[in-house]
Every structure is written in C-alpha cells, then in structure tokens.
Amino acid sequence: MDRIRAPPAIELENISKNYGDIQALKGLSFRLEPGQRCALLGPNGAGKTTTLKILVGLLSPDSGYVRIGNYPPVSEEARRIMGYLPDDASPYRSFSVRENMEYIGALRGVDDVSEKVDRLLDALQLREYERAKVGRLSRGNLQKLAISLAIIHEPTVLFLDEPLNYLDIPTQEIVIDQLKMLNATILVSTHIMEVATRLTERVIMISHGSKIWSGSLSELKELGQDGEPIEKVVARMLTDAV
C-alpha cells in the first residue's frame, strides 16, 4: 500500500511583494518538509522579515502562492499549528509575565494553560519575574518571554526571526534545547551564521528578494575553498549575488 505523503509544512511559490517602488521580494519560492529545520540567510534588506510576515499571514503578497501545512496562512487551521517570534518582539506592556502567557495561552485554546505556563516559567528561568510588568524586564528576559509566547501552544511549524538576540550564552543553550524538543518544522531568519548552525541543518540564502542558493549545511561547507570558514563562504556568495 502506498504511504500517503504528508503535505509540505511550508510552501512558498513565486512570491512577489512591493512596498511602493521598492521590490522587496521577486518570485521567491521554496518549501520545507515536516520536521525540517532551515535557516533563512541574507544580508540586511534582503527580504527575510518580509518573507516571514507573508508566511505567518500578517502581510499579503502581491502575487504567488503560500501554504502552511496545506492551509492558507490566515486560516484558523494554519494559525493553530504555527508559532511566530518576530525580531525585537514586544509582548503586551500592560500585562505581567504570567498574564501575557495565560492570555495568549487562552487565545490559543491551550488546555491546562496554568500548567503550561508553570512549565515554561521554570524551563526559561522566568519564575522570579512571574508577576513583573513587562516594562520591568531586561531585554534578555523580554526575549525569553517572547519565545515562551511563541511556543506555548507547542506549534508544529515555527517561524523565528533572530531568536537568540539579547540572550546570554547559558540562556541561548536553554532556548536551543527547548526549540529542538518541540520537533517542529522551523524556519529561522538570521544574518548570524552561528545561529543557523546551532538551530538548523539546512539553509536558504536570499538576496534582494530572490533565492540565490539552498541546500544542507554540509553542502554549504563543501563550497568552501582551502578550509575557508563557512561565514566566508556565505559572505562570498552574498557578495557575488549583488
């Protein structure tokens, strides 16, 4: 009997997006199979954040086709399975840490919200700030709270924009463990190669709104000449693409 093939977790086909006269994305296409973890690499202004916003349904593309687990990004079905952490994420300022987590948990329809919140507070070492207003938090703790809000419903498709920003090294390790434990399809937007290597095994490289390369990290390393570090390889490829 033939196995029924699961639809791609993330599918993006020929996406274009303009902001006035500026063309942010030009016919961008890629897909991620369930369980894949992939980095979206590119220089500043390459279109990484725009791509993520289109994938999570906060921005409509001018043309093209987007599916998350075979559903349109704005559908309730897609919303249920995906999580999103934007760059410089800011939770609700007037809430405390726990209120933010419980409110989003309730909106997500999470069973046993309190239990999940307690688990995340401990896992991300936020317990002592449970009752603190968001305005009181340091940037690092704010980032931990933002990560917990993105994963509180245990998404199967996760979009992360510079997830390790502001985190000290021990906390980065905790966050990496938590994210890997999810077993989700993950697309990480970053311009820091180390973040890509720690969190993912594949790379999609974009520049000026177009894909210039995609493949596994090991394939990327093989492109290096004479023991060239991977950062140099990426820099050369991005420079050549200009």
């Binding site: 809430f95 405390s96 309730a106 909106l107 997500r108 919200v113 449970e130 009752r131 207003k133 009181r136």
Partner: peptide
C-alpha cells in the same frame, strides 16, 4: 520608577475559551 512595578493581582485566564479571554 515606573519600570519597577509588580502586578498586585495577577489576572487569570485559565479555563477561558478564546472569545471569553478576548
């Protein structure tokens, strides 16, 4: 001063449906 506050009474959303939480 304004950023040193703690919430006195934490509001709970446990057991609420999404629309009730909203």
């Amino acid at each position: 001063r304004y950023s040193s506050g703690q919430v006195k009474h934490v509001r709970r959303f446990q057991g609420m449906s999404p629309i009730r939480a909203i």
